[in-house]
Structure formats: structure tokens, C-alpha cells
Nucleic acid binder design. Sequence first.
RNA 1: GCCGAUGUAGCUCAGUUGGCCAGAGCAGCUCACUUGUAAUGAGCAUGUCGGGGGUUCGAAUCCCUCCAUCGGCUCCA
Length: 645
Amino acid sequence: MINITLPDGTIREVEAGTTAHDIALSISEGLARNVLSAKVNNEVWDSNRPITESCDLKLLTWNDDDGKSTMWHSSAHLLAEALEALYPGVKLGIGPSIERGFYYDVDFGEISFSSDDLQKVEEKMKELARKKSQYIRKDISKKDAVAYFTKKQDEYKLELLEGLDDGTITFYTQGNFTDLCRGPHIPNTGTIKAVKLLKVAGAYWKGDVERKQLTRIYGISFPKNKELIEYLEMLEEAEKRDHRKLGKELELFTFSQKVGQGLPLWLPKGAALREKLESFLRKAQVKAGYQPVITPHIGNKELYVCSGHYDKYGEDSFQPINTPNEGEEFYLKPMNCPHHCEIYKAIPRSYKDLPIRFAEFGTVYRYEQSGELHGLTRVRGFTQDDAHIFCRPEQVKEEFKKVIDLVLYVFNALDFTDFTAQISLRHQTERDKYIGSDENWDKAEKAIIEASAEKGLDTVVEYNEAAFYGPKLDFMVKDAIGRTWQLGTIQVDYNLPERFELEYTGSDNQDHRPVMIHRAPFGSLERFVAVLIEHCAGKFPLWLTPDQFTILPISERFNEQAQNLLISLNNYDIRGFVDDRNEKIGKKIRDTELKKVPYMLILGEKEVESNTVSVRKQGEGDIGSFTEKSFVELINNQIEATLAQ
RNA sequence: GCCGAUGUAGCUCAGUUGGCCAGAGCAGCUCACUUGUAAUGAGCAUGUCGGGGGUUCGAAUCCCUCCAUCGGCUCCA
């Protein structure tokens, strides 16, 4: 007999060889039906794999991430089975589950496979799923495994086998398909009730640019069709919110082939939005003790040789700018920090001066690969809300806390309420790949962890995710439809102070090296605006939106009064315009609704006589008549409520 | 950069067995109406059919090439 400890602490004494499925069945039949896999001592197992020793056991269903992964991994196998049935002779790479769904990498040989073919494969998968074929696990010797795939002429699986030790190899079979796989899998294909193949893409074998490119087929599956429909609706919603689409519709930004790939052009409304964001942060930064600095868009090659960026990225940068002076080369600035280091060096610094915080909305240029460019989220010229804090090692924690406050203030004002902070630390054992003393690293890592805890952040710690020059804290933000974006970042840097030989005079009258902190609450304005657009579906917070109201005269007769009202409202520092087109009021309202302008002020005979305006709220409708003053109050109160704290 | 797909008016899209001056809706312009809470009506105009080259009597349509965009891969200081 062995003891199985369940998550609630209860212990079940059962015979060795009992399966997780048996345990589930002893609890309820419904549970047993829903169990996809099980966690045995923290390792995910097939639910029908015999348990031979006492252990902790957690049954996994669709509600567990590990349960979902099991299902998706099994779906990948089902995809492979369908592909083999339809395209005999295809060679298979790997087919894992991913964050949302699964994929399989396939070598179709001479056959060209495109998205038009997905439907057919999907149908085959559904047909195979209905057979409820069991996923059967089998231990196999390396020799037999190699023999199997040699016969099948699948060089990819053979290559995978090379990296595996004899005695650890398992095969899984369902229906007519057998795959090299460590598992685990769901009990049978019948659980896969709904499946959708989403896209086809190229992917390098083993992620290596030098290797062959395989065809990757992405898909997702669910235990209920309803969930698939909901998922597809979510994708549709994401498409509607796409910042590239909304950016065009709302006239925020554009791109021009003539100007160049990946170089965004901000239209007046987009520029207004962005300036609003900048001045918002600028104000907050002044309060937090930052000093604005300004640096040029290019820098001498020597600057980047000193910073180390030339060595690392020189080849992949925009090509150098040459001057009539032979041998003189300038580069478009890819980073602001080297410039800021030189500002730090311009004046001798005392320990009493620290921390020093230099802030700049610095536009930088990076030659991103053409295939990487994507709307505003990945561009070749962008503006960072950059700042560098130079401080003493013992000040790192306090500075971190201040930066966290600033980031939280920004997120709150923009309605990003759901986020976690990722603390990226060194690899736990391999320490030689980092620059800086162990002592300083320990100090900084401890400072980040403590600062995050003291600020009550919801954190996850990731080892081996630190930059080579220091640990960092990244903010992972969930948007309105559940997608995660990495926005703000705070990074400790020991490298640049070293390379630029930055110093300050300590109380001991000796020279000391300051610690540098890079931080950017937005990251880049371009990327941030993109995320913001998708988060709020183009309906920006009132304080930020380019046009807060539109004045809609009932007929041309009231255009003049409308203009006067506009001038008057502009005096209160609120923004809007008059729709003086010769159109019916219904048409003007419709157009304004579609432009997502928050307030519409309707002005006709009634209003002129009573010296009021009728106010209509976007998405809600008529909210009654207001005097000019009460409307201004309405707007200002709403803005204050968002920005206060 | 790589694999695959796409590129027709400002926008969304129709138009391929190669063949009359390349089409529609919306937006735009003109005129009429002077309008009361999500589309007033009539009329007008709109294109190097992504660029270049080729095949052909004839190309938006077929071929080559370049560019851009989209989906991924790789990359992301």
C-alpha cells in the first residue's frame, strides 16, 4: 500500500499501481471525466499512469494551466496524426503546447502547404478525435527508437534522439500515430471537442537561422465548442482594437514608404495625445526630483565604442554618418545613456549630490530587421521616456521605491490596473557571465526584492533573466482583453559607470563609483501609445484624448455661436472643435460617435435662447443641458478624479 | 534577414479561361434643403490596378525582379 496526499491535506491509502484517474473516480465520476492529467510530486503525469510510490497528488483539469497544456500537447499529436494521414511521408519536427494553444513544425518536402489547406486538416483532426483513441505511453530503448525513426526516415526525430539518454525515452501512440515524446497526455482524443487551426508560418528548425525552415501550423483546442467560439470572438475583438487600424481611423499616426520603413509620422491628433503623455510624465518627474537634460540625435563612434554598444550592435545599426574629416564617424544614437554618462562627467560629483536623476524624452534609432517591424510596437525610430539615476550603492533601494511609485502613478492614470512585476536576477550558479562585483549584485538584488515587497507589488522572480550588466524589474501589464504586455522597466547597471569611469567623491575623500539605474515607465512612447490604443479600444481617458468634445450646431445658422462657444471653452484649457458641416444633426452625431470623441455639445435655437448646451456622452446618449461653466466643471472633475493621488 | 500570403480610388472591397474608355459603397467636391440626438437628396470628380522589366496583336489578370504590408521564425542595447 502507498499513501497519496491530496492538495487539501487528506491522505489516501491505496494499492501501488493505482492511477490518478482511479483516485478521481473515487471522488466523483464527473471529476474523473474532467481530469486531463495529474501532478505527481510536482511533475505532470498521465492520469492513467500507475503510481507506484507514496506521493503528493494534484488532479489537473481544464481549470489548471498544466491541464490546458496537456490537452494542447495532445492536440499537437492529433494534428500530426491528421497530417500523416493526409500527407504521407511528411517529416515532423516538434509539436509542443504554447501559452495559447499548440503548434507542430512540419517538413512537407516538395509539397507546398498554405493556409487554404488548414480547413481540410482541421476536419481530419475532428474525425480522428471522435474515435476517442487512447494515448498510450511506452518505454523504449534508444536503439529501438532510432530504428523506428530510421525506418520512417525522419531525420528531425533522429536528431532529437541523439540528445537523449537510453532508459529515459518514451513513445506515445494514439490511433495510427506514434511520436517520440516525454508526455504527458490526456487519456484519449475524445476530450478534444473543438479544434481550430489558426495560421501557418515558417520556423527555423531548432530556432537556428542557419538550419532548414519548417512549416509551423498553429492551432488551439477546447473541451467545449462554446469556449472555442468565445476564443474566436476574443480574437475578433483584438482585431477591432488593433492600433494600426485605429491609428489610421482616428488619424493618430501614419507610415510612408517615402519617409522609410518603421519610421512613424505622428498626425496632429496623435501628436496632441503624445504631447499630453509627455507633459504628464514631465510634471510627475519634476516632482520626483528629476532634472531634464537634452542630448543630440547623433554621437561620435568613440562614444559607442566606450559604452560597448558599438561592439555589440555596430554591424546591425544604421550605417555611420561620415564627415569631410577622414576617419570621423558619427552614429544615430541608439541609446541615451552614454550621452547622460557624459553629462554626469561634465562636473565633479560629491556624495552629497547623489542621487542625480537625468531625464530626457530621447529619440533613438535602431536598425531593426525588416521582418520585425510592426505598427508602432516595433519601429526603427522611437522616443524613450528615459532617465538615468546615478546613486550610491546604498541608495539603490530607496531609488527603486521612488521609481515604483512613479510607475504606479502612471499606470493608474491610464487605467492599467492588472499587472505583475517581474524581478529578473542572475543565474543561480553561473556567475561569471555578469559584470560587477558579487557584493554589489547581492546588494542590488536584495534592494529590488525588498523595494518591491515594501511597495506591495505582486511579483514573480525569474533567475537567469537579468541583463549582463545588472538585475532588473519589469512591469507586465494585462490589457482590457487579457493580453500581457511588458511596459515599464527599471534596470540596475554596473557596466556603464565602469566603462565611462564615473566617479564621485565620498565622505572619506576617496573616489567611488556610482551605481546607475535606467528606468522608463512607458518604455517607448510609440509602443506605449500602441498598447494604450488597444487597451482602451481608442476611447482614451478624458485628460488624454486629443478632442474632448465636439460642438454640433443644429444648422448653419448657429455656426457663429458655436465658434464663440469654442473660443470660450478653449480659455478653460479644454480641447475640442466645431462640426460646422452642412449636415443634419443625426449625421453629425453618428460621425462624432465613430470618432470616439467623449462629449458632444448640441447647439440650436433652444440652447442659444437659454444660454446652455445639450450634452451627449459618447456611447451613452443625452445627459441633459449644461451651462458653459457646469460643462467645464463636469470635465475638470472627471479629469481630477483620474489624475488625483 | 528567412518562410508563406497579400498589394486595384483617401478607406473597405468587386473585377483572372488575358480583350469594349477598370467598377461599387463610404469619404471628397458642387447644389438644394436649414435641419433636434447614430447616415437628407441630387449631381460631379476620383486611379501611373505597388515600382520596374518581360511574354503577347493585346496584361490589373501570365512570367521575372524590386519595394511595401500582413502572419510567424530569428533578433530586440
